[in-house]
Simulated assay, not measured.
Amino acid sequence: MWQKHAYKLHSLEHKVRKAKGMTHASDSGISQPYVIGVCGGSGSGKTTFCRQLVNFLGKDHVLHISQDAYYKDLTHLSFEQRQQINFDHPDIIEFPLLVSHLDELSIGKCVTLPMYDFAKHCRLIGNQIVTPKPIVIVEGVLLFNDSDTEKRINHKIFIDAPEEVRFERRLKRDVRERGRTAESVQNQFKATVSPMHNIFVEPGKNKADLVVSGEHSFETIIAELSLKVLREVWVN
């Protein structure tokens, strides 16, 4: 069984390498990037999936954008007030800015991405300037909830995982990377993450072109998806 899987993966990798050798569609006058949207609950495995997909497609060909960078700036509020904000509701994301950036990238313009401090709940001073690339991967919990953002996505992927798995992963990440206490993570998950997931995130599964389990290896799926995307982006 393992040998059959390894052979299939090797074959797909060979086809992907061959596809990368094709001519980019922009050489024929088409410059609009192919946008992949990766949605799913917090802790479902979106970031891992996106990083593996970027590595497989090649960093020179892909721009990876996170919805998390587009949390609205809350510096006008005290830290105590920021802590009371529902960060799992679509209204806290500056989707119009994300949409404008996707539109600018689609016509070959560089964009300035915001950066966010999750420990302080506010935007960082300074920005990240990025250049257009043939493939754009947009990752986010609420991507498919915003109709304007959804319209700009060519291929929608939903990473699916049970709530208990998502909670355990979020707990480890937020304590390790975002300066949170275990108690605050648990309280937030119960108060907003779980109910907002059911209302705004889970319905996105029905909008997806592909639903992927966040509990299993992504290898074969990423290889198959990469081949499909490269065929869309590159032409003979």
Rank of each mutant, 00 (worst) to 15 (best):
D103N: 15
Q52P: 04
R152W: 04
G179A: 08
N236P: 13
K190F: 05
Y7T: 12
Q52M: 12
V138S: 02
A182I: 09
E150W: 01
E177S: 09
K18V: 11
A6G: 05
Q186M: 09
N198Q: 13
G40T: 07
L230Q: 00
H10F: 14
K72G: 10
P96D: 15
D117M: 03
A208G: 08
Y71C: 09
V141Y: 01
H197W: 04
R170E: 06
S147T: 13
V185E: 04
S66A: 11
R231Y: 05
H121V: 01
A25P: 03
I221K: 10
Q32F: 02
V229W: 01
E168R: 14
G29E: 14
P134S: 09
E13N: 13
F49Q: 07
N86G: 01
T47R: 07
E139C: 07
S31G: 09
Q3Y: 14
N187G: 11
I157T: 10
K133W: 00
K133G: 00
G43I: 08
R51T: 10
Q3L: 14
N154Y: 06
K4F: 11
C50G: 09
P90I: 08
V193K: 06
E104C: 06
L57M: 04
R170T: 12
S66W: 01
S226F: 01
E202H: 11
E150Y: 03
Q32L: 12
L113N: 04
I135M: 00
G108R: 03
R123L: 11
E104P: 00
K190V: 14
V212G: 06
E177A: 13
V130H: 00
W234D: 09
R166S: 09
G126R: 13
G140E: 03
K228D: 10
H89W: 06
Q83V: 01
V16N: 10
Q81C: 02
Q67T: 02
R51W: 07
L143E: 04
D103I: 08
V235A: 10
R17K: 14
S26C: 04
Y71F: 13
E163S: 12
T181V: 03
H10I: 08
N145R: 06
R176E: 15
I107S: 07
I129N: 08
M22K: 15
I137N: 01
G58V: 03
E164D: 13
M1T: 13
C122P: 03
S31A: 12
R231Q: 15
D27P: 01
H216K: 15
T47V: 11
D209I: 05
K18M: 08
N55C: 11
H10P: 01
A191L: 12
R231L: 14
H14G: 06
I93Q: 03
I36V: 15
S11P: 01
